[in-house]
């Protein structure tokens, strides 16, 4: 493998990459199954995506084009530092365009622009175990996965409805993969859940602290758990994007002044920018652009 400055290509030594790739291959072979791996110390704290970074490092090739997002944005501290990390250690090209990227590392979102074949989406995962909430024992959750003993998952949703009148879980919404493993899709909003299913891209999930890797190979069937009389709803704020006017994208609420002013804007900054570049305008596009730019 090529060297980049004083670093081994993409930071990790080749043995570690091999170990992680083995875990990835197993994860792809058994969609939704959590594969243990020997997570390495990375030059960033846990909670900053060490799992995702290791998966990305194990996947990157010199000709890859990398995009990194945090909550949908390319310009947050976390996204910027991870992108810089790979620019320095792998020398790969980077982009903010979803369509141009070959590898996308993400925290908390799936891009709005539909992914395509050949792309890899790498998720940063804090807690990979969807059953953890109700069953703290790892030995027990493993057995439950092995035996498809998933009654507890619905107990969790039942409790939601009993307490709030509806399934209140709005992110990290549990899914069933190919009718077999129940999986935590990482803390993406449930609005993104439908994008998990039948996705042409390869989706990889890395949990650094918990030392787990799991995967959804392209075109895997992913179903969000629900009840017949309380079906899954991929909800979002009932507004248009104030900048680009999009009605189909997940929105963040932004406080604009200290007098209670607020606006809803696309959480996916690239999607929003591309729409504006194509001439789409939201209600507050002009004044915001003047003030912000």
């Amino acid at each position: 493998m090529t060297q980049s400055g004083q670093y081994n290509f993409a930071y990790l030594d080749e043995d570690t990459k091999r170990m992680i790739r083995r875990a990835l291959l197993k994860a792809v072979a058994v969609p939704g199954y959590q594969v243990p791996f020997a997570s390495r110390e990375m030059p960033m704290p846990y909670g900053w995506g060490t799992g995702g970074v290791q998966v990305t490092a194990a996947c990157l090739c010199p000709e890859d084009v990398l995009k990194v997002i945090d909550q949908g944005a390319d310009d947050t501290t976390n996204a910027v530092s991870i992108r810089r990390f790979f620019q320095r250690t792998a020398g790969v090209a980077v982009t903010e365009r979803t369509g141009e990227a070959t590898v996308i590392q993400t925290r908390h979102r799936i891009p709005e622009t539909p992914l395509s074949e050949g792309q890899i989406l790498v998720y940063q995962v804090p807690i990979p175990e969807p059953l953890r909430f109700l069953e703290p024992r790892e030995t027990e959750t493993r057995r439950m996965h092995a035996l498809e003993d998933y009654g507890l998952m619905h107990v969790r949703l039942y409790e939601d409805i009993a307490r709030h009148g509806a399934i209140a879980t709005s992110y990290a919404y549990p899914v069933k993969v190919e009718g077999r493993y129940v999986m935590d899709p990482s803390p993406i909003p449930k609005f993104d859940n439908p994008k998990l299913s039948d996705c042409p891209a390869l989706q990889l999930f890395g949990a650094g602290r918990e030392q787990r890797i799991y995967a959804l190979p392209p075109h895997t069937a992913v179903v969000s758990l629900d009840f017949e009389d309380h079906p899954f709803e991929p909800s979002k704020a009932d507004h248009l994007c104030a900048l680009c006017g999009a009605e189909d994208s997940y929105l963040d609420e932004v406080i604009t002044d200290d007098a209670g002013g607020r606006m809803f804007v696309c959480s996916d900054t690239d999607y929003c920018a591309e729409r504006r570049a194509a001439g789409h305008r939201g209600d507050m596009a002009a004044p915001f652009e003047e003030a912000g730019a």
Binding site: L134, D149, G151, L152, Y158, A162, F227, E228, H230
Partner: peptide
């Protein structure tokens, strides 16, 4: 940590009950 109703319902859900009502 689960309500009385959830406790009673668990076995039903474990064997495939999917209607909350």
């Amino acid at each position: 940590g689960v309500s009385a109703g959830g406790n009673v319902g668990e076995r039903l859900m474990a064997v495939g009950a999917r209607h909350y009502g």
